[in-house]
Computed example of a mutant assay.
Amino acid sequence: MRHQLSFACEGAVLAASLDEAADGTGLLIVSGGNEIRSGAHRGMAMLAARLAEAGHPVFRFDRRGIGDSEGTNGGFESSGPDIAAAIAAFRAAAPNMVRIVAFGNCDAASALLLHQPLALDGLIIANPWTYDGAAEETDEPALPPASAIRARYLSRLKDPKSLLRLIRGEVDFRKLFRGLSALKAPTPATAPDGLAARIDKAVAGLGAPATILLATGDRTAQAFVENCPAALSRVPVERLASPSHSFAGDDGEWLAARILAILNQPSLRA
């Protein structure tokens, strides 16, 4: 059964949803960007219902200044108190629960890493945001890393259909030249105090088990792979061949299956 509830965070009242279930391991969903707790196309609400049906309680919330919550929206870098308050509210609302795993996509994934330590028993980090600046402030999607562009063009050059589209003039040359120009640009060095460097450092210091989920065709995931190589060597990574940043459509089945597998891990229940 789903309940709507609220909890306090630094003087503001935050809105939340709890999908009840009997298992002792629950999932906290942290929303990314300025997304409300139901998620894009209600994706997180549907994910919560599925996980609860499988036996796991799920807690979602709107951080300060988002959706039905009071307060000022300070972005993901100031959301540590929101997440900590949500963890406490989740435990209070589901007293039989003994373990909490948190899931976040995009800058919510980055927030879960940056605001450690948190009272969590595990982390599921999807397509972490590594560009300096908030995800919602980007007017145009960032280009993929040069390595991803090279791989994409090489694949297209091998595809007769792509060559036929080029001959017929069906290719958007503005996008083509933008992509080719990116290949010439030198890869900027990661700033030692930049977001990517801080995420690498946060992964190195994690006290709870974590899993990274990546949609390999997603630009944000591609940038994470290029910007945070150390993180990839420290944490198990599972990849889905998809361009969907939010695991939309059928990709949602893969996401739910991976989360369920992690929630049911014997090591987490030890």
Rank of each mutant, 00 (worst) to 15 (best):
V58P: 01
A94V: 05
L213R: 08
S242D: 07
S38I: 08
L213H: 06
T216V: 04
V235H: 01
C228H: 02
N96M: 06
S79H: 02
L113M: 14
T25E: 05
P243K: 14
G11D: 11
V30M: 02
L183R: 13
G122L: 05
R99A: 10
A85L: 07
F90S: 09
L183G: 07
L5P: 00
A210N: 05
L180G: 13
R258M: 06
A108K: 08
E137I: 07
P57W: 08
I125L: 04
L27A: 07
A86K: 02
N96I: 01
D251F: 06
L120G: 11
K158G: 08
E77N: 06
F76V: 13
A48W: 04
V235K: 03
S147V: 15
I262N: 00
S162T: 12
A134Y: 09
A88L: 07
G26S: 14
I262R: 10
L214S: 02
S155W: 12
L27M: 09
R64H: 10
A257Y: 04
I29A: 12
C106D: 15
V171T: 15
L27C: 08
L260Q: 11
L260P: 00
P186Q: 09
A241L: 13
I262Q: 03
R152N: 08
L120E: 05
E170V: 03
P229A: 03
A21V: 05
G194M: 11
G169R: 10
V98K: 10
A86L: 02
N127Q: 11
D82H: 12
A196C: 07
D23I: 01
R150C: 02
L214I: 03
L268T: 04
L163P: 03
D19Q: 11
P192T: 13
R198S: 02
G39W: 02
P186H: 09
